[in-house]
Design a protein around this nucleic acid. Structure first.
Lengths: 192, 192
DNA sequence: CTCATATCTCAACATCGCTTAGATAACAAC
DNA sequence: GTTGTTATCTAAGCGATGTTGAGATATGAG
């Protein structure tokens, strides 16, 4: 992984890193395989052997994203439970805004990418489901399963809309985190 | 509007219609201005006079989308109140899946488009806010303003995730509408 | 050392967004 | 109706892109 096995070294992760950095600056449309190859000091056709396709590159990018999200949520969960997960989820979406958006964009929702991404998204949901079950009140009108779905939908909505033309500025002084956790409490009927 | 005033007739809406139709089939990336011009029987450079830019085309598409969403929600609101709005919102997102995703995609969230879209998105939020206020219980821990934000975030999450790799198949037999309304009730502390 | 295999270069093709210069049609004024 | 102004469109071209295929080059196994 750290040793250079071939001509370039580890082109695959080099391209992924460059793509992620480019994603942080601009949007997805501005990412061109040729430009990434240029930044990696490699010819225009080189990346195609590793990703086959532009869709393959995007898919790989999203797979890494889901994997990181899972890791971060895992840590937050063991430290601060559901509230920590909510905070960390929103933090992830904010830190890697463009990557996060990409992970849920139609470019990935449609086509073959969906199937390739599901194995990476599933653990996140299951972890969320588990924690919601642990913390939810038995008197909740919804099962932990559906509560978890509700929570994810809500969190994704917050992460997606907060910077867009719909909600921008409407939150006022209210901090995003506390607003979100208040709503999550209502969705889960949690003990506290 | 129906009479052909110039060479083509009404190229602007012709291009928009073609774009929307193409959007229904494939995704956004597959839409090329040249292709749209081809379908309208017009040269490649013609659309640029009407939209100036690819971003301009996308913005116009989204403006139409928000306008239609507003109209549909308006009708649903006067007929069936908040529950009707929730159903109609999800119905709109399902009927025009690609357009809906586009309306909230980073391609539109970032850049100049956001400002041009805000005037079209604002009425939708305000209508939602009004209805939530009318139906919410006074004992709700959140104001109608924040409840409306919560509801929109949640609805957007449901609309976005239901077809993606994250929630696909997890709803089981539960119908999307009833699931959504159950959660919205919890978010708004509505009277029934 | 030999050779299969993985990796990369190079050149090319079709397409794309966009720009510019010039043609064409609608409309207003006289 | 003639003229001029303006909106609309065509034609041609520039730079850049995604993708492909043939061939070069290095790696690791036998």
């Amino acid at each position: 992984m750290t040793k250079p096995p071939y001509h370039h070294g580890d082109l695959k992760t080099a391209i992924l890193d460059a793509a992620e950095k480019a994603l942080a600056d601009k949007s997805l449309g501005s990412i061109s395989i040729r430009e990434l190859a240029r930044q990696a000091g490699v010819s225009s056709g080189a990346p195609y052997h590793h990703f086959g396709d532009r869709e393959g590159l995007v898919t790989a990018l999203c797979q890494r994203g889901f994997h990181r999200l899972e890791k971060r949520l895992e840590d937050a969960r063991s430290d601060d439970g559901l509230i920590g997960m909510v905070k960390e989820y929103l933090s992830f979406a904010k830190d890697h805004a463009a990557l996060y958006q990409l992970m849920f964009s139609p470019e990935v929702t449609a086509g073959d990418s969906k199937a390739k991404l599901h194995p990476f998204a599933a653990p996140v949901f299951e972890m969320l489901e588990r924690q919601v079950g642990d913390e939810s009140d038995n008197g909740s009108p919804q099962s932990p399963h559906f509560s978890a779905i509700s929570v994810w939908c809500f969190m994704h909505g917050v992460a997606s809309l907060s910077s867009g033309p719909t909600l921008e500025g409407r939150l006022g002084d209210q901090k995003l985190e506390t607003f979100a956790y208040e709503a999550v409490k209502m969705l889960t009927n949690s003990k506290d």
